[in-house]
Computed example of a mutant assay.
Amino acid sequence: MDQVIQRKIEEALKGLFSAVSMLQEAYPGKPFTLDGRLVGDIGEVVASLAYDLTLNEGLTKQHDAVTRDGRKVQIKTTFGTSLTFPVHHVPDYYLGIRMNRDGTFEEIYNGPGHLVQAELLGRKATKTGLHGALMPMLKRISQKVPEADRIPKR
């Protein structure tokens, strides 16, 4: 491998692992691993700081947090243009956010999971267990969710 490329890879990895260590120190309850969970873990922590919910510790199936009144919340995060929704279960609440590089975020969807599921009834199940390419649909549905059916902000 080209020495210049090798050095750049080594420097980038050093920076990534340094960032992961900083994230783990700031919020010890999440692993922030570089195996595909990093974006989700970041989104969950950002959501827990912005919304009135409590994160589950570690990894839990089918939901990431609970509201004050005990409803389960699934949080999905992207830095891009695609959010997913589960095929095989419906969360009480679904919170979809798009992160910005500066740590701010845009709320894409905040509301009951059954409203999203109703829009997806005609879609075929996928091998991944997730419906994808939902950003426009989620934005449209979210505009119709009454304030009382949203996870309140802190």
Score class of each variant (00 low, 15 high):
13 L>C: 13
36 G>S: 10
82 S>I: 06
1 M>L: 13
137 M>Q: 10
81 T>F: 09
31 P>H: 07
95 L>R: 02
34 L>C: 12
59 L>K: 14
116 V>N: 01
84 T>A: 10
4 V>L: 13
150 R>Y: 02
95 L>W: 08
35 D>S: 14
30 K>C: 01
51 Y>H: 00
125 A>R: 08
53 L>E: 05
69 D>N: 12
120 L>W: 00
143 Q>G: 12
103 G>A: 06
73 V>L: 09
154 R>H: 12
9 I>W: 10
137 M>H: 01
106 E>F: 00
70 G>R: 09
104 T>R: 04
105 F>D: 00
28 P>M: 03
59 L>R: 14
118 A>G: 13
108 I>P: 00
150 R>P: 05
121 L>G: 08
31 P>M: 09
102 D>K: 07
42 I>P: 08
37 R>I: 05
32 F>A: 01
46 V>G: 04
75 I>T: 02
10 E>Q: 14
50 A>N: 01
18 S>C: 04
113 G>L: 04
115 L>Y: 07
27 Y>V: 02
77 T>E: 11
73 V>Y: 01
150 R>D: 02
90 V>T: 15
77 T>H: 07
113 G>Q: 09
30 K>S: 09
123 R>V: 03
64 D>R: 04
141 I>N: 07
72 K>F: 01
13 L>A: 07
114 H>F: 15
79 F>A: 11
